[in-house]
Design a binder for these strands. Structure first.
Length: 575
RNA sequence: GCCCUGGUAGCUCAGCUGGAUAGAGCAACGGACUUCUAAUCCGUAGGUCACAGGUUCGAAUCCUGUCCAGGGCGCCA
């Protein structure tokens, strides 16, 4: 067993072994391990094996449980074992073992989390906005959820490549090229590049609807671009550069970093060959002038891989992208984070990828579309909320709160704090919901700073920091490592148990691609801490108890900070 | 028509790989700041887990059907 194995791992290994030695279970593969109880009064961990084995052993569950308890010697970290209800076997950890475990974790930089990703490579494809369009609140989920998954996987030891698969290729660039030459306002472009590019696009698009020659012109310019025309290429590159510059401002504010910014165009040269592969494998066939892959036997509608005008589309690009990524990086897994509308597309292209032997482990992580209470977002309705505006609003609301609660703080620090709190609140709101739920956007919810929110966690962290600093000011000569951690009070016990479960939360969040498992954990932890803080004295406790509690505080602070960091949420020592 | 999701407290949402009395925040009501940061804590109230069947020791959770809502289904990504 690994050095910082959790109680759940140790106990599960033990019950599994002990069950097999007490009963003749043959080759059965049911789960004999333990899980956390959902109520303290039942102990810390429960084993349900007695009920699961009823049929196989031909005995009543309580009898099985009793025979097990009578026969199996207790491991030393368990203080009590009892049978309850229909046949639950409940375990109570010993306080000494708990205290020793929390102390041991102080020396582990991963807080007890196993480095399961060591030697494995994962590509995470997220955010992926379109060039020449500004990011709106519909983009926040892919960015924030993708980034949390990115951070979780890195923490677990995976070699992560975060790739921003920009929408930088396609028919809209014909319109952009002619539109730019006709409509550009250089001043506006310098001041607010993407906004101006967007204006150009809309103007050009509207003109194309009324003017067929304009449409033809756009098409011709697109062909020139695709053939490598130097002038068009330079303009196109300018669009991309300006857009990425603008995107990066948002990413900086969100503390999101990518290893690669490879747009669709990067894979362009591979498309004809990909089509040939599909044809050679007998997968592609002609239909109404387009080239399609029939997926009926896989229970899906057909997938178009080449349009009737000879152009390629997203399925082909995505296949070529996978091929390229396998050749260059040989990843163990590729994770795509997009909204729910692309589920069918990903199912189709994953199936085709498998058929042509692109055997990477492909995962589509999708999330529910963000909508407004009245309707879904629509540019036509004019109800798009720009991401930058959302972040501005969050920071300014946070700044108001900071100014009223910490009026004496220097202004620079107030602003820095408001940024951490405002951005944190936005991210937390998004991350704390099940990704697959429908999400209704409300300002009230997005900027929530009370109760179950990032500021609650940040506040808890700041209070601990303050206590910790005051402790050192009052007792400058104390050496915490010489004072052992003791678990005596019930609330200390709850806190310690929660701290010991950090690794399970990280692992579950990563395995299920669900950062909300992490937010739930951290919120629970902060609640227990707040209760601890409010109900027992630290600095005024007697010597020994005081040191022990300060150590618990320190472990909590570390766990909160690390956990929030895995969600991309910053902490500050003072609030 | 077919496919994918969701429906849990007044509101916003957790819980869904089956476990014991279904949780939190907000809103409501009642308490706690001369005290380690009250962005907090303690308490009260609030539920036919959409509906109907089924599976089993046990179902909010799995299966089937119905209703409601959102999304997708040949040249947008």
């Amino acid at each position: 067993m690994r050095e910082f194995a959790t109680f759940e791992e140790r106990l599960s290994a033990w019950t599994t072994e002990a069950m097999k030695s007490v009963f003749d279970l043959g080759g059965c593969d049911v789960n004999l391990g333990v899980s956390p109880t959902n109520n303290d009064k039942f102990g810390d961990y429960q084993c349900n094996a007695a009920m699961v084995l009823t049929k196989q052993l031909g005995k009543a569950p309580r009898q099985i449980a009793q025979e097990f308890v009578d026969a199996a010697p207790l491991p030393d970290f368990v203080s009590k074992i009892d049978i309850a209800g229909p046949g639950f076997i409940n375990f109570h950890l010993s306080n000494d073992a708990l205290a020793a475990h929390i102390q041991a974790l102080e020396n582990d930089r991963y807080l007890g989390t196993e480095q399961v990703g060591e030697g494995k490579k994962v590509i995470i494809d997220y955010s992926s906005p379109n060039v020449a369009k500004s990011m709106h609140i519909g983009h926040i989920r892919s960015t924030v959820i993708g980034n949390a998954i990115d951070r979780l996987y890195r923490f677990l030891g995976y070699d992560v490549i975060a790739d921003n698969h920009l929408g930088d290729w396609g028919t809209q660039f014909g319109l952009m090229l002619v539109g730019y030459r006709e409509f550009v306002n250089e001043e506006a472009l310098a001041a607010s590049p993407v906004e101006e590019l967007e204006r150009i696009y809309v103007a050009s698009y509207n003109k194309s609807k009324e003017d067929p020659t304009w449409r033809d012109l756009a098409k011709a310019e697109l062909v020139k671009l695709q053939q490598g025309d130097a002038e068009n290429r330079a303009l196109w590159e300018k669009f991309i550069e300006l857009s990425i510059g603008e995107f990066n401002k948002i990413y900086d504010r969100l503390d999101v970093k990518f290893d690669l910014y490879r747009g669709e165009s990067f894979y362009n040269d591979r498309l004809p060959k990909m089509i040939r592969t599909l044809e050679e494998k007998g997968l592609a066939k002609e239909s109404d002038g387009a080239l399609i892959v029939d997926l009926e036997e896989d229970g899906m509608p057909i997938c178009i891989v080449r349009k009737s005008d000879g152009g390629f589309n997203y399925a082909t690009t995505d296949l070529a992208t996978v091929e390229s990524r396998i050749e260059e990086f040989d990843p163990d897994r590729i994770i795509y984070v997009t909204d729910e509308r692309q589920q069918l597309h990903f199912r189709q292209f994953f199936t085709i990828a498998e058929k042509i032997g692109l055997t990477a482990n492909l995962v589509h992580v999708w999330f529910g579309l963000m909508r407004l209470p009245e309707a879904t977002f629509s540019t036509r309705e004019g109800n798009v909320i720009k991401l930058a505006a959302l972040l501005d609003e969050a920071e300014s609301r946070a700044l108001e709160m900071v100014k009223s609660s910490s009026p004496d703080m220097p202004e620079e620090q107030q602003k820095d704090l408001a940024k951490a709190i405002g951005i944190g609140a936005i991210k937390y709101t998004d991350l704390s919901q099940n990704p697959q739920s429908l999400v209704t956007f409300t300002w009230e919810k997005a900027l929530n700073m009370e109760g179950n929110s990032a500021p609650y966690l940040q506040y808890a962290y700041a209070r601990i920091s303050s206590v910790y600093d005051k402790y050192h000011a009052q007792f400058p000569d104390s050496d915490l490592s010489k004072c052992s951690l003791k678990i005596e009070h019930e609330i200390e016990r709850r806190l310690a148990i929660k701290l010991s479960r950090f690794p399970a939360a990280v692992q579950a969040a990563a395995d299920n691609y669900r950062p909300n498992i992490m937010t739930d954990y951290l919120y629970d932890l902060a609640q227990i801490y707040s209760s601890f803080y409010q109900n027992v004295p630290f600095l005024k406790a007697e010597e020994g108890v005081r040191e022990s509690r300060i150590r618990l505080c320190r472990s909590t602070a570390r766990t909160l900070k690390q956990g929030l960091n895995l969600l991309g949420i910053e902490t500050r020592e003072r609030i």
